[in-house]
Amino acid sequence: MNLTIKYFGMLAEATQCQEEEFLFSQESVSDLLKMLFVKYPELEEKDFQVAQNNQIVSKDSKIETTEIALLPPFAGG
């Protein structure tokens, strides 16, 4: 399936892009992260959470949507 990955803050800086699409056939968030760490080794050292359907999910959860967001630490307020 076609998966859109969104990057924010320091992660967008590390990947040099805010979003990109992948054709992705595996099931879990951790599979996706493995692939992203190969493309962007810098990401592996960053502190971030993963969101799908606007909720934070654990890294071993299944991918159930077509948009995944990688969120660095929050700084609102």
Binding site: F8, G9, A51, A69, L71, F74, A75, G76, G77
Partner: peptide
Amino acid sequence: VKTKVPIFG
């Protein structure tokens, strides 16, 4: 807001 909202600075 500080802990749950994805805002980056």
